[in-house]
């Protein structure tokens, strides 16, 4: 637990664009002059399963893995995944949760229930919580694929990286023709 290292954990469901969001955070931290390490999940775990990505930045970073209970910011692109991985957040950390719901196949099979009181649970778990209707906002922007970058905008409120590093990071990580759209998505999330 190096005191000067900032840890971030992103959760969601395989295919939601967690990897892009985490790459942008890593890039922004790098542009801001920090050493960065990150870890992501590939392979079997990606096929619609629960996934997390971990990013750490600071002056001198060793482990790419975040210890449970130490993340400064924790975000989830899916509601119940926020609950599943909530224990990564530090007691004073910021949680950002997208209201998107993806019902697991186990629910359809009758071997589990999607909880109806997600909002109450989130409010009980997280002291410092931003709930974002990322899918709704992405729809307003005309492309549901930017929901992840909207969440990223909200995440940025909990991190000490300058705004211009975020913009620069987005431009470097997305295709040029989607840069403007993604920057608007980021702003929508940052101002939510």
């Amino acid at each position: 637990m190096s005191d000067n290292t900032t840890s971030i954990v992103l959760a969601g469901v395989g295919g939601q664009g967690i990897l892009l969001a985490s790459s942008i955070i890593a890039k922004a931290a790098m542009i801001a002059g920090f050493e960065v390490k990150m870890n992501e999940v590939h392979g079997m775990a990606q096929r619609g399963g629960s996934v997390i990505a971990q990013i750490r930045y600071g002056k001198n970073v060793h482990s790419p893995l975040v210890e449970e209970g130490t993340a400064k910011v924790f975000a989830s692109l899916e509601q119940i995944e926020a609950i599943r991985f909530a224990h990564y957040l530090s007691p004073d950390g910021l949680a950002v949760v997208s209201t998107q719901t993806i019902v697991p196949v186990t629910v359809s099979m009758g071997s589990g229930k999607y909880p109806q009181d997600v909002k109450q649970r989130l409010e009980k778990i997280f002291k410092n919580l931003i709930i974002v209707d990322a899918l709704g906002k992405a729809n307003e922007l005309g492309n549901i694929k930017v929901a992840n970058v909207i969440v990223l905008g909200a995440i940025s409120r909990g991190l000490d990286l300058p705004l211009e590093t975020w913009h620069e990071a987005i431009k470097s990580e997305v295709k040029e023709k989607f840069a403007d759209l993604n920057i608007r998505a980021f702003e929508a999330g940052r101002n939510s």
Binding site: Q46, R47, G48, G49, R84, Y88, T106, S111, G112
Partner: peptide
Amino acid sequence: IVPAPVEESKDLPARPPVLC
């Protein structure tokens, strides 16, 4: 004690990988 999944996560439906 490593911080464990929160109490509110105990009854969550599992999300295993599936055929797309």
